[in-house]
Amino acid sequence: MQPRHSFDAVDLPHRLLTWYDRHARILPWRARPGEPADPYRVWLSEIMLQQTTVVAVAPYYQEFLRRWPTVQALAASDLDAVLHAWQGLGYYARARNLHRCAQVVTQDYGGRFPSDEAELCRLPGVGAYTAAAIAAIAFGRRATVVDGNVERVIARLFAVTTPLPAAKAELRRLAESLTPGDRSGDYAQAIMDLGATVCVPRKPKCLLCPWAEACAARAAGTAEALPAKAPKAKKPTRHGVAFWAVNEAGAVLLRRRPETGLLGGMIEVPSTDWRSAPWTVEEATALAPVPASWVPLAGRVRHAFTHFNLELTLLAGRVAEAEDDGAGLWCPIDRLSEHALPTVMKKIARHALGKS
């Protein structure tokens, strides 16, 4: 379905940009009118904003800029320092890729981000959306930026009833048909602002929308129902056993997870694999990281990941000696906060300290 009336791919962007010039959000990473955009700041904000809200990101962004004001400074930093500063933003693979990308840009590109979408997509952690955002906002390239806000705006403007995620290709094609060649960065930010502040998921503010007269879903009275979404599959539950090992000095055993996979490279409380079937105590103790008399702690630790729910039981044990046996690192309990522990590991520590 096409937008109503005679609005076209020239008039609609013009209307949106006129609205944006009056109502653009003031954001810490957004260049002021007349100021050139800093590719480093654009990239940093876009990585942080993935699956996270503007309100949550703002203080992290400002702290990162204070500690690492340039891509070269971030590249030279210690990964653990970056992971520690990232705590609270979740999805730690983004932090690892952020650090690695800074190193690649510094070493292979002389500290300058490439401006081409295809070249940007070769950088660690930079996908199609982020590449388009950097190309458009930082370099003024004609690039179509499609995030959840943009999908919602386009689905309503064209009354696309195909459920997500099946509708993604169609929504991208329609969004691309409207992307102007001039002021591409402003347009990308404008359509994201429109989705974030006006064309919101519930009770869209259609009277304030510069595209209201052209919106097919508004005319049909279906705006709030779009974009349609396929029913979510029930998330499976995985089970594991965590080992809370404390030595004679009162230090707890931690170790680093493998670099690849979920929570890759993060510091953890040792545990079994996470599997679909619950573990018996006998199965778990056979895989304990150090010898100890293991005692089950009452209760469970529960944590929700994107694609599954996790249930952990805990075994606590006292370890006679604290020598470096390769099992991991021994951390005084009052210094746990110095390590970049993922949220699920913090839950384990709180549970163990409350029960042991």
Rank of each mutant, 00 (worst) to 15 (best):
7 F>Q: 08
8 D>H: 08
16 L>N: 01
27 L>E: 07
40 Y>A: 10
42 V>M: 14
43 W>P: 03
50 Q>L: 12
56 A>P: 07
57 V>E: 03
61 Y>K: 08
65 L>I: 14
66 R>S: 14
66 R>W: 06
69 P>H: 10
73 A>M: 07
81 A>L: 09
81 A>V: 02
85 A>L: 13
88 G>W: 08
99 H>M: 13
105 V>P: 04
112 R>G: 08
114 P>I: 05
125 G>K: 09
126 V>Y: 02
126 V>S: 02
137 I>T: 03
137 I>Q: 04
140 G>D: 06
142 R>G: 10
148 G>R: 05
154 I>Q: 05
158 F>S: 01
160 V>H: 13
162 T>W: 07
165 P>M: 13
170 E>D: 14
170 E>H: 12
173 R>T: 15
175 A>F: 09
190 A>Q: 04
197 T>K: 02
199 C>Q: 00
200 V>G: 04
202 R>S: 12
207 L>C: 07
209 C>I: 04
214 A>N: 07
222 T>P: 11
222 T>K: 13
223 A>M: 13
224 E>R: 05
232 K>L: 15
243 F>K: 06
254 L>F: 06
260 T>K: 14
265 G>E: 12
267 I>P: 01
274 W>T: 00
282 E>D: 14
282 E>R: 09
286 A>V: 05
293 S>R: 07
295 V>Y: 03
299 G>P: 10
300 R>F: 11
305 F>L: 14
321 E>M: 00
326 G>C: 08
329 L>A: 12
337 S>N: 13
338 E>F: 11
341 L>M: 13
343 T>E: 15
347 K>L: 15
348 I>E: 08
354 G>V: 10
355 K>Y: 01
355 K>V: 10
